[in-house]
């Protein structure tokens, strides 16, 4: 469908690939993805911080009403994840939905986010999965 332009994918690659969040020098709070101003206090005095790759699942939904292009991994689990200094919404993978529990430890994994049709770009980014190793 040609919805992922080269420029758009390229612009966001660093924070998509490496969980780089924005951090406000004024109020100290972090937010992901990095914005132009702090969503909490509005300050534009920001720097960047790499988020921890392990966190906890606050809540989740098992989504059956997915677009056709995601049918190969439906149902898709969407989780609200607490990484300590910031929270984010992300897909939770590598789990049978029935085995998932609120409070589970989850870890970041690098995955395909979208594949643009048959000839377009492959968009990569971070998803999460329950920690079972170590």
């Amino acid at each position: 469908m040609g919805e992922w332009s080269s420029a758009r994918v390229w612009r966001s690659r660093v924070y998509r690939y490496r969980l780089i969040a924005g951090r406000c020098r004024s109020c100290g709070r972090a937010h992901y993805p990095p914005a132009n101003a702090c969503p909490y206090c509005g300050s534009r005095d920001l720097d960047e911080v790499e988020l921890p790759r392990v966190g906890r699942l606050i809540s989740y939904s098992v989504v059956y009403a997915t677009p056709f292009e995601d049918r190969d991994r439906s149902p898709v689990v969407i989780g609200l994840i607490d990484l300590g200094i910031a929270r984010l919404v992300a897909e939770v993978v590598d789990v049978k939905p029935g085995d998932l529990r609120v409070g589970d430890r989850v870890e970041a994994v690098f995955r395909r986010i979208a594949v643009d049709g048959n000839t377009g770009l492959i968009v990569y980014g971070i998803k999460f999965r329950p920690v079972r190793v170590g």
Partner: peptide
């Protein structure tokens, strides 16, 4: 992410 119809509402409902 592929939130489909109601992914965010669903997780808020569980919360």
């Amino acid at each position: 992410y592929s939130i489909g119809l109601g992914g965010i509402a669903g997780l808020l409902m569980r919360l």
